[in-house]
């Protein structure tokens, strides 16, 4: 409503100021085709210059590196070797296994965090009195440095002194969960879920508070049960906000690898060697194979570029999703 009222006078003003016959030419002159001489571009210039150095230059270097043998000792030098790095990476079975592992890890953490995040949001939404306090506690893990989250996980699960290890031994899970190839990946997944479910819960809670109470009341008057209301009324209304949570989480899930570094660093027996760990090894740990690392970097980059495209398509130009306050009602 208010938007409509705003636009009306503005249009009249503009047409009065510029006679229609000359409007086209005047606009063309005032606005250079690329918009580079505008005040707005001048405001962006300093930041975009820095960003250029930190994104386009590395990107070009990354592409060059992927076709070269890179030496960094005694000055940086690139010796071009054609597609050697690419064929080595594409022909390496261990790397394909690492991709498969990354996919499992990615789907597991994002999937679990979405489901648990929804569950937490639903509980918090039903909670009237202590919502603010509980939400504050739930948010805390997000602010802990991921490397510390990994180490804290190791401490809690330490088979001789860990608090959680003791509890798990009580139910028969006596082994060191991070040291066994079959349990290491699920354990890391659950540590990541601990840290990042709060983010999903926070976003979805904002979506839940935005569902009009009248809709819910109408559904309950009709005699629909809670689960039915949830599936056929609440969730469909929350679709855009669920997509936001999914995209934000997906992009971070592939960005960070600190938790893995701090817990298993890829082991035991490669059970947790996801692609970023593999890349890090190529680049910094064993034999300096920066070219192969560059190939892996480019393939990872392709994924995040697709994510950014989807995000921008849905939420870039459109005004943002209005949602209720996530907390302070209790």
């Amino acid at each position: 409503m208010s938007a409509g009222l705003d636009t009306a006078p503005r249009t009249t003003l503009r047409t009065r100021a510029v006679p229609p016959a000359r409007a086209g030419r005047a606009r063309r002159r005032a606005r250079p085709p690329r918009g580079l001489k505008t005040f707005e571009f001048a405001m962006m210039a300093p930041a975009l210059t820095v960003l250029f150095v930190l994104s386009w230059v590395p990107f070009v270097i990354l592409i060059a590196m992927s076709f070269a043998k890179v030496r960094t000792l005694g000055g940086v030098s690139l010796t071009f070797t054609g597609a050697d790095n690419w064929s080595a990476v594409l022909g390496d079975g261990a790397i394909w296994a690492s991709w498969a592992r990354s996919l499992v890890y990615f789907v597991a953490i994002v999937g679990l965090e979405m489901l648990l995040g929804l569950a937490v949001a639903l509980v918090l939404h039903q909670l009237v009195r202590a919502r603010s306090v509980v939400l504050s506690i739930v948010l805390l893990p997000m602010f802990l440095a991921p490397v510390l989250v990994g180490l804290l996980g190791r401490f809690m699960l330490d088979s001789t002194i860990g608090l959680y290890a003791k509890i798990l031994q009580g139910v028969g899970l006596g082994d060191d969960l991070l040291a066994s190839p079959s349990t290491a990946l699920p354990t890391i997944v659950s540590i990541d879920v601990w840290q990042w479910t709060p983010l999903v819960a926070l976003i979805l809670l904002a979506g839940l508070t935005a569902v009009p109470p009248a809709t819910l009341e109408a559904a309950t008057v009709d005699g629909a049960g809670y689960l039915r209301t949830l599936v056929s009324i609440i969730l469909p209304q929350m679709k855009p906000i669920i997509l936001v949570a999914l995209l934000v989480r997906s992009m971070d899930a592939i960005r960070y690898f600190d938790i893995v570094v701090a817990t298993t660093n890829g082991g035991p027996a490669d059970a947790t060697k996801i692609i970023p760990i593999k890349l890090y090894e190529f680049a910094f740990r064993f034999n300096n194979q920066l070219g192969k690392a560059a190939v892996l970097g480019l393939t990872m980059l392709a994924f995040s570029i697709v994510m950014a495209r989807i995000f921008l398509r849905f939420f870039g130009e459109r005004p943002s999703i209005a949602a209720g306050d996530g907390g302070d009602r209790g």
């Binding site: 930190l54 994104s55 230059v57 590395p58 990107f59 270097i61 990354l62 590196m65 890179v70 960094t72 940086v76 992009m251 592939i254 960005r255 960070y256 690898f257 692609i275 970023p276 890349l279 890090y280 680049a283 910094f284 920066l290 690392a293 560059a294 892996l296 970097g297 480019l298 990872m300 980059l301 994924f303 995040s304 570029i305 994510m307 950014a308 995000f311």
Partner: peptide, 13 residues
């Protein structure tokens, strides 16, 4: 959104 690992390598060089 770029993965940290992918940015690190060229930045290091």
């Amino acid at each position: 959104m770029a993965p940290i690992a992918a940015v690190l390598v060229p930045l290091f060089v």
